[in-house]
Amino acid sequence: MYQIKKKKILNPTVVELHVEAPLVANKARPGQFIILRVDEDGERIPLTVAGTDKEKGTVKIIYQIVGATTKKLSAKEEGDTLQDFVGPLGVPTHLDGLQNVCIVGGGVGCAIALPIAEALHEMGARVTSIIGFRSRDLLILEDEFRAASCTLRVMTDDGSYGEKGNVTLPLKEMLEGGERFDAVITIGPLVMMKFVTLTAKPYGVPVTVSMNPIMIDGTGMCGGCRLTLNVDGKKITKFACVDGPDFNGYEVDFDEAMARGRMYGAFERHAYEETCNLYKKEVQ
């Protein structure tokens, strides 16, 4: 069992947990993920590592309450335990040799983008961060990003904070203005990563995207997390759990990935409502 050492509510739907898992804390690097189960018979969900504390042996995860499992997870408090917590899985984000990088995070994806920005900042790279949210209420980690970035642009869809608009606006503006990034690293909703990739394409900047497909084992056994890459005109199948989660944005078939992400949509909505009803009953 894996104990929750610290819990912090970042916004009404986003929660930060520090979970005691010394072996994982000892190994995890930016870009890698863990898989957890909240309780016996629960589903296995992958969550990207948002930070580690090797001395305390804890792993930080930041997640959004979107379905039944994250709802159950949000009911756990400090001192409670999780059934399973395994990792670190996947390949760490490739950062070697990068000197001038644009990090583009969207929503809860910013939680995963932050350790990458911090690692680059520590390496002495010039970090430009663009973080986007639907509205001011959902903003997270602004101060942390500011500390790790030379330039920070905060965007909201409704203009309730920072600048109004999508994250692609400042990216396009900077690239247009002659900014020569070594790489754009983007983490967030699939549709955002797709458009970040399209925005960067005319300028020939390498784009790394962090894929977060449905997974079960996370160790290269089930193949559920597969995605299609278009490499030199050929379609090839890759597995996000062992080949990723980072991929070359120009190669990823985003439309297929988005459709696959919706595969259990109806089931998930139903399960989420059931879980919410259970908690409501408990409260009554």
Partner: peptide, 28 residues
């Protein structure tokens, strides 16, 4: 890692490897 045939449409929703299909039913 499960093998796929490399034919069009293997990324559609409703296409499983046997490993995934059986894991969902058995283990999960």
């Amino acid at each position: 890692l499960p093998n796929f045939m490399g034919i069009p449409g293997e990324g559609l929703c409703g296409v499983y490897s046997a490993n995934e299909f059986l894991t969902r039913s058995n283990l999960m």
